[in-house]
Amino acid sequence: MRTVGRRRAFPVSLIGRYLRFNLAAAIEYRTAFLVQVFGMALNNSAFIFFWLILFERIGSDIRGYEFSDVMFVWAIVASGYGLAVVVMGNASQISRIVYTGELDVYLLQPKTVLPNVLFSRMVVSGIGDFLYGIVLFVATHPVTARNVALFVVFVALVATLMTAMRVLYHSLTFFFGNAEAFALTASDLAVSFVLYPGSIFRGPAVWLLHSLVPAALMGYIPVALFREFDPVRFGLLILADGAIVVIAIAAFHLGLRRYESGNRIGTRT
């Protein structure tokens, strides 16, 4: 055997290499890089004014949600989304990677396929989202050890869940030929629902938001736990997140057996 070095399925150090590599590629186009990062932060800021005006007009409470609760959801979702797309930016590209046959490149490398696919691409604008979430959190909440710890945990959970949902939705491409449009819509739907107070939803929508479009797991359960931490409820949240991650991984690997590859000409960008 001629290759040297310890062989690992997917070493953490490779994540660092991918991040440095993608950042270097993004900085090749400095202006576009800066516009994407700051443009996204500016875009998000516009929504804060919308919520400010709304709360001023209808009072300080929308079905139990206060302005600071909405800002907390915005902060963890913005930073969680940013973290997900900066570190695992290929989750939303899985359909394209499958139907163009680009997955071949990953299957030829000696690394576990799913993490290798996910970590190999960075969405630069996500840096803006990530930083924006942190700034928003610091600006709207007291920076205590407890608050910061919960913020960090929920950002990580949101990032994991968002990625898992994308993997699950896009893995349908293995079975149906192309599920890209469905996956994009479903992912956007989850983000749209999560940004509104969970208490405004009733009936079947509540079930939907805890399962197929798990906005509740990213939004109002974290908000409730941030207000008043309950270890049992937190444990259930972790279990629910874990279940979705397991289902997403299983869907990807089941799909991989049906992979038919393709011959589309292309380069890695």
Binding site: A25, E28, D104, V105, I265, G266, T267, R268, T269
Partner: peptide, 14 residues
């Protein structure tokens, strides 16, 4: 080792 003329393993911008 593999070289598929149609699929590059080099990053286009780097």
């Amino acid at each position: 080792g593999t070289v598929f003329g149609q699929k590059s393993q080099l990053w286009f911008h780097l």
